[in-house]
Computed example of a mutant assay.
Amino acid sequence: MNRVLVPQITVAPERPTGSPLSLRGETMGTTWSVNLIDPGTVPRHEIEALIAARLQQVIDEMSTWEHGSVLSRFNVAEAGSWHALPEAFATVLACALEVAKASDGAFDPTVGGAVDLWGFGPRVVNEALPSPAESAAAAATIGWRRVSIDALGRLQQPGGLRLDFSGIAKGFAVDHLAAGLKDLGVISALIEIGGELYGFGVKQDAKPWWVELESAPETDLDRFVVAACDLALATSGDWRRRFRHAGAWYGHTLDPRTGRPVFDPAASVTVLHKSCMRADAEATAITVLGVEAGLAYAERRSLAAVIVARSADGYDEHMTSAFAAMLDDE
Rank of each mutant, 00 (worst) to 15 (best):
M1R: 12
R3S: 03
T10L: 12
E14F: 05
P16W: 05
P16C: 01
L21C: 07
S22W: 05
R24H: 13
G25P: 00
N35S: 13
D38W: 06
D38R: 04
D38T: 04
P39E: 03
G40H: 07
V42G: 05
V42A: 05
E48L: 05
A49P: 00
A49H: 05
Q57S: 04
D60F: 01
E61A: 02
W65F: 15
E66V: 15
E66N: 08
G68I: 14
A77N: 05
G80Q: 03
G80W: 03
S81Y: 07
W82T: 13
P86T: 00
A88Y: 06
A88G: 14
A88I: 07
A88N: 10
V92L: 10
C95N: 11
V99W: 02
A100S: 15
A100M: 05
A102R: 08
G105A: 07
A106W: 00
F107D: 01
D108C: 03
G113K: 14
V115P: 02
D116W: 01
L117A: 06
L117Q: 07
G121N: 04
G121K: 01
R123P: 00
E127F: 02
S135C: 12
A137P: 04
A137G: 02
A138T: 15
A140F: 04
T141R: 12
I142W: 00
W144T: 02
V147M: 11
R154D: 06
L155R: 09
L155S: 08
L161A: 08
D164R: 14
D164Y: 12
F165Y: 08
S166G: 15
A169D: 08
G171R: 00
F172Y: 15
F172V: 08
A178T: 14
A178P: 10
A178R: 14
K182E: 11
G185L: 06
G185S: 10
I187C: 14
S188C: 12
A189Q: 02
L190R: 09
I191S: 06
G194R: 05
F200K: 02
F200C: 09
V202A: 05
A206I: 06
L213R: 01
S215E: 12
P217I: 13
T219N: 07
D220H: 10
A227T: 12
A228T: 11
A228S: 11
C229H: 06
L231Y: 01
L233N: 12
A234E: 02
A234F: 04
S236A: 14
W239A: 13
R240P: 13
R240M: 11
R242K: 11
F243T: 00
R244C: 08
G247H: 03
T258V: 09
P261V: 10
P265F: 10
A266W: 04
A266E: 03
A266I: 13
A267R: 15
L272D: 03
K274V: 07
K274I: 02
K274T: 13
S275C: 09
C276W: 08
R278T: 14
A279Q: 01
I286K: 01
T287D: 04
T287K: 10
V288I: 13
V288L: 09
L289K: 00
L289S: 00
L289A: 03
L295Q: 06
Y297M: 02
E299V: 10
E299P: 01
A309S: 15
R310E: 13
S311W: 09
D313R: 13
D316W: 04
D316V: 15
H318T: 08
A322E: 10
A322K: 08
F323Y: 09
L327P: 03
D329G: 06
